[in-house]
């Protein structure tokens, strides 16, 4: 699997027009000649493709992603300390936590709201409640995110000044107490997180709804009902538990989106996350960074999927028993 991902990333790099080494985004014959040389060394471009790939994989296996081609030459993955003790942070090291924070928050919100909406519309199947919920989540999916973002920024940031417009911190936040810094950060995150959550509601809540509908028609629910259990208990304890279970795998599947973050939301809200980093690197043909992000992103996806599988096994009694045996 990892091999496959690295192959695809490698292929993308070779998609770039002409020789990869002709890629320096400036009118600068000298700098580009030098970076060409560096690229040759880095990717062994004078050797046959298969050997290039092998050597690249070997370096990646040692977590050596090299330095950015941009003039700051920051390390791609992790910080580096020079001889006099100055630390230069890695690009992914800086942007990944921000992206993860936003998207984990988003996922929590998406799931809690979706489970609620999905259950509600399953219980009230084919009533106006069901239909309004469906319509609402679809509108959330269908509205172009950056447009809504700008509207909300204007409404909550300019007209009413309730929330900050962009960025992650207010001016002078260093002077705030830890708690106030946290509140400040939360305020900055409200808009970006809700915009990115809104588009994810549709998929999950429909999934919950359809899952609930399937389960509500199953025998054990009928049994529970016939035993005279309260409807609410039937729905929330017996049915919901079973309907949520498959969601664990969905979390695993949604990891790529999570790592990728959103290029657009990050540009609009001036958040220096992975999406923005990737976009900038693509525009600057910063190949070490592009490759680093694709590889790390895919790698984290694998871990995510693995965790989801384990979580599923842990939560599902049938599988758990199977494991014990």
């Amino acid at each position: 699997m990892l091999i496959g991902i690295s192959l695809v990333s490698f292929f993308i790099m070779h998609l770039a027009p002409g020789d990869v080494t002709s890629s320096e985004a400036s009118f600068n014959p000298k700098a580009s000649e030098e970076s060409r040389q560096k690229l040759r060394e880095l990717y062994n471009l004078d050797k046959p493709v298969i050997i290039q790939y092998g050597l690249w994989v070997k370096r990646i296996a040692q977590l050596d992603f090299g330095n950015s081609f941009a003039s700051h030459q920051k390390p791609v993955l992790w910080e580096r300390t020079d001889k006099s003790g100055n630390v230069t942070k890695g690009l992914i090291q800086e942007s990944l936590p921000i992206t993860l924070m936003i998207n984990l928050l988003g996922i929590c919100i998406i799931f809690s709201i979706s489970i609620f909406l999905g259950t509600l519309s399953a219980v009230r199947q084919n009533t106006w409640v069901d239909r309004s919920i469906t319509l609402f989540v679809f509108i959330g999916f269908a509205i172009p995110g950056f447009w809504l973002a700008l509207l909300l920024m204007y409404w909550t940031g300019v007209s009413n000044q309730w929330l900050p417009i962009s960025g992650l911190h207010s001016l002078g936040y260093q002077n705030l107490s830890n708690f106030d810094q946290f509140i400040d950060l939360l305020k900055h995150l409200i808009l970006p997180v809700s915009i990115s959550s809104l588009s994810g509601l549709a998929g999950i809540s429909l999934y919950v709804r359809n899952g609930m509908l399937d389960i509500l028609h199953q025998d054990f629910i009928t049994t529970a009902r016939s035993k005279g259990l309260k409807e609410s208990k039937v729905v929330f304890i017996h049915a919901l538990k079973n309907a949520i279970l498959p969601l664990i795998t969905i979390v695993g599947l949604s990891i790529p989106g999570l790592i990728g973050g959103s290029v657009i939301a990050e540009s609009i809200f001036a958040i220096p996350g992975m999406g923005k980093l990737f976009y900038d690197s693509v525009l600057m043909r910063d190949f070490p960074v592009i490759m680093g992000i694709l590889t790390i992103g895919s790698f984290l996806t694998l871990i995510g999927n693995l965790l989801a599988d384990i979580g599923y096994a842990w939560a599902d009694p049938r599988v758990r028993k199977g494991l014990v045996k």
């Binding site: 700008l150 940031g157 000044q161 900050p164 417009i165 962009s166 609009i268 001036a270 923005k276």
Partner: peptide, 18 residues
């Protein structure tokens, strides 16, 4: 100097006095 990639966001910040 704040880094705000999108010019429409910049303009919103200007109108909001930030």
């Amino acid at each position: 100097s704040r880094i705000i990639p999108d010019t429409s966001s910049q303009f919103l910040e200007l109108t909001a006095d930030n």
